[in-house]
Design a protein around this nucleic acid. Structure first.
Lengths: 201, 201
DNA sequence: CATAACTCAAACATAGCTGTTTGAGATACA
DNA sequence: TGTATCTCAAACAGCTATGTTTGAGTTATG
């Protein structure tokens, strides 16, 4: 089984299994960045030897999973126009990205142990920077709270997204409900707080 | 070296080392629930054999770390009077607990691999329930937003606290700054949002 | 000061995981 | 249908980490 073969000439079953392995890797890594290759194989419904037949090392599997995640992120995030109203831009970003950011999280965790996994880190850094820039712009325009550092608000953004992914993974939150609460929660995070003296109804 | 010996009759150096090992375990587990015993020993400034001299297994060390965390939590959280104004109660809870909740997080992660680590899970569940009850009360009193499930707001509470701990651990947030932004962020999470039509300054 | 407690380098055994090989059976495809 | 690809059980090798033992040196304590 030569891994240098392009997808185009793989048999149907090999293609299916390869895709299943990558998907299983992303799911398992999100839950546990140190998941074993045996578990990933099992989650993909293939044997361990088959997994190694497709990816000769953990590193190679991580790279393939990263490439797929980056490709998906590029397809979903790059086209986003974040130049309009900061609130609406943030909501658009949240709505488009919350599912995929959890994949980054798992891969980043795994990448910590694999020296050289620069691509995934760099891509995630770009995403973080993008979020941060948007938050900074919202602050400059007084659309977002500026009493807290943008860096902290960015960290909160990701914390909430990952928290949501965990809730979904553990069955406590449905995807439908998530699509509603996540954007609202992120908006709450960045909203300018009411004046200290004002009372809420 | 008999581990059944009570602390009272341990030599001073043994007491110091034992405490250092537990503390190192909590710190290391918070960063990585699967940290090796070798790393914990190193972080504690002792040899691996010394660690095993004090704790005959990973499980025993986890239990001791859990016992200490529970004891600290009890000392710090149990006396809190959460019966007053929901906003103030939540702030009190945040201010008192954010440092210790990260210890629970690491221990819970480690506990996932150790069947029987029920005490730490149970204690954490109690804490979660306590937060959730408070949030529910705040919702019932219209002091907190009720358009999102209390369960979700509880998850966000913990996500923010853990996010903060990570930021501190990685040097991006100082403890001083954390003491300011965390309570404000948690308040933002639960605050009743402004009416959809109102505009912010 | 004498002695017990404590520490730890070195070495050992074992378990679990990664990575590899082999060959028979299954699957895909022309 | 023939053939190449693909899969995987079984087995192997090597590595890492856990848990254990030994004995010499260090530290604490009465």
């Amino acid at each position: 089984m030569t891994n240098a073969t392009t997808d185009r000439i793989r048999r149907a079953d090999a293609q299916r299994n390869r895709a299943a392995i990558i998907e299983a890797a992303l799911v398992c890594l999100a839950a546990n960045p140190r998941v074993s290759m045996t578990e990933i194989a099992h989650a993909a419904g293939v044997g361990r030897v088959t997994l190694y037949g497709h990816f000769s090392s953990r590193r190679e599997l991580l790279d393939a999973a990263a490439a797929q995640t980056i490709s998906r992120a590029d397809a979903q995030l790059a086209p986003l126009d974040l130049d309009g109203d900061a609130r609406e831009a943030l909501e658009l970003l949240v709505t488009s990205s919350w599912r995929i950011i959890d994949n980054f999280h798992g891969l980043l965790g795994a990448a910590e142990q694999e020296l050289g996994a620069d691509r995934i880190r760099e891509h995630h850094d770009q995403t973080m920077l993008r979020v941060r820039r948007l938050i900074e712009r919202g602050q400059a325009e007084a659309r977002f709270r500026s009493d807290q550092p943008a860096e902290w608000l960015t960290a909160c953004f990701f914390a909430i997204l990952h928290g949501a992914a965990t809730e979904i993974r553990e069955g406590r939150l449905s995807e439908d409900a998530a699509a509603k609460v996540i954007p609202a929660t992120v908006q709450a995070l960045v909203s300018v707080p009411a004046a200290p003296g004002s009372r809420h109804p």
